[in-house]
Each structure stands twice: as structure tokens, then as C-alpha cells.
């Protein structure tokens, strides 16, 4: 939806009040409508192609091809230190699921930013949880719902030992809420090209080098804030 399409509606609102709406009010109203439209359609990542001067949806095919050609993810999704003004304590993890970034808060208004993959449509979530435990080369036990819908997961219903083929990758941080396992994890991956995508069953995935770095810098008990607009709030399992 473009702002041009909104213009007649805004003019009607303007006349009905018998006065000029403040530009800020108009912009806010337009934004509210745009936001409502955004909730209705999923927020998607796009990548710029300098050869065509155009933006393209960053879907699984494009992401896989990009990784094949460059041997790495786009620059924005690489680990980097960024300015980050927050009142949250250093050591807190803040996840922006819509933009596919995970921030580890550092002192002096800085953060380490990592690229992530998040839950596909219907599997994303938002909430405030904690790191309940950590594991190196974690064993993967697919939850019952995943076993029921995914034949690949069903093969490992009894658990898959940790290792390079394990979908949890090199490390895992287990997310707890009120002392209970949420079944969600922050973990590594065997699919490094999938960073930047909505692809998982609700877990947050990082490249293996990145999850090792995060694992080494996060303590059990660390607060984890998951922001994901358009997704349901975590309300327990």
C-alpha cells in the first residue's frame, strides 16, 4: 500500500475535523494504517542487487545461491560490534526477529550483533525468557509436534547425538521461562546459508562460529528479550 493510495482517506479525515491536521498527526495516522497492513502481510527480508539496482525478496533460493557464490552471508548478517543504546544490562540478549539480528549487550552502549534465522510463518514468537542451560555439541531431541509433522525429525524421535550433522550445530542455549524449558533454543546450524530467513520451527539459529562466540560470552541466567512483530507472545508450552 502506498501513501498515494492513502491520500483520499487522509483528506476526508482532515475535512471532517474542519481544521488542518498537523503533519505529524497525518503521518502517525498513515503509519498506523501501514502498520496494520504490515501485520496482515509478513515482514520479509530483501537484498539489493547492484547489477539491476533493484531489491529482491531474500528467500531460501536467493539465500542459498548467495552463499554458494560468495561463500558467506551478506555483510549485514556477519558478526560485528555496533552502537546500541539500551538500559538493559550487559550480558542481556536482545533478538530482533523481524530484522534477523541478535544483539548481545556490551558495556558503554555497544553490542555484538549477529545474523540469525528465526521461526517460519506461524512459528515465530516474542517474549522475555532466560538462558536456563548451555550445551556444547548438543544432542537433538525433536519435540513431539515436530516428530508428528516431519518425517526427518521422526527418524530421530529418540534423540540424535551431537556432531557436525546435528541440526543444533556446535552449541545451544536452552531458553527457560519461570524455571521451565520453553522448548526453544538459540543454537548453531548445519545450514549457514539460512541466516536471514524465517525458516525454523521457532528456534533462533546462528552460524556455528557465531554461536560458539555467543556461548562463550553468555552466562546461564542471562535475560533474553525476543522481539517479533506479527508473532504471538510466548505463553508457555
Amino acid at each position: 500500500m502506498s501513501t498515494t493510495m492513502l491520500k483520499p482517506f487522509l483528506e476526508i479525515v482532515d475535512r471532517s475535523n474542519g481544521m488542518l491536521l498537523r503533519p505529524f498527526g497525518i503521518a502517525s495516522l498513515a503509519c498506523a494504517i501501514l502498520i496494520a497492513a504490515a501485520i496482515a502481510s509478513p515482514i520479509e527480508t530483501q537484498i539489493y542487487d547492484a547489477r539491476t539496482n533493484q531489491w529482491y525478496n531474500y528467500d531460501q533460493t536467493v539465500a542459498f545461491r548467495y552463499f554458494e557464490q560468495h561463500g558467506e552471508v551478506p555483510t549485514e548478517f556477519k558478526r560485528q560490534i555496533v552502537a546500541f543504546r539500551t538500559a538493559e544490562e550487559p550480558g542481556t540478549i536482545i533478538i530482533d526477529g523481524n530484522r534477523h539480528f541478535l544483539y548481545l549487550v556490551l558495556p558503554d552502549f555497544k553490542a555484538i550483533r549477529y545474523g540469525i534465522g528465526v521461526g517460519k510463518e506461524g512459528f515465530g514468537w516474542a517474549g522475555i525468557v532466560r538462558v536456563g542451560r548451555k550445551a556444547e555439541w548438543p544432542r537433538w531431541v525433536p519435540p513431539a509436534e515436530m516428530v508428528a509433522r516431519d518425517p526427518n525429525a521422526a527418524k530421530w524421535a529418540g534423540g540424535m547425538p551431537g556432531g557436525p550433522d546435528n541440526p543444533l550445530g556446535a552449541r545451544a542455549l536452552y531458553l527457560y521461562e519461570g524455571g521451565r524449558d520453553t522448548i526453544y533454543r538459540i543454537h548453531g546450524t548445519t545450514q549457514p546459508w539460512s541466516i536471514g530467513l524465517n525458516i525454523s520451527s521457532g528456534c533462533i539459529r546462528l552460524q556455528n562460529d557465531d554461536i560458539i562466540d555467543l556461548y562463550n560470552n553468555v552466562k546461564v541466567g542471562a535475560k533474553v528479550i525476543v522481539l517479533m512483530q506479527g508473532a504471538a507472545l510466548y505463553k508457555g508450552v
Binding site: 515482514i43 530483501q46 551478506p74 549485514e76 539480528f101
Partner: peptide
């Protein structure tokens, strides 16, 4: 070179 189709507010 990466953006979202909807410009959400930065996390901070």
C-alpha cells in the same frame, strides 16, 4: 544491502 519490506523500528 539488506532491508525488510516493512521498516520496523530498531530494537533499541
Amino acid at each position: 544491502t539488506i532491508r525488510t519490506n516493512v521498516r520496523t523500528a530498531p530494537a533499541e
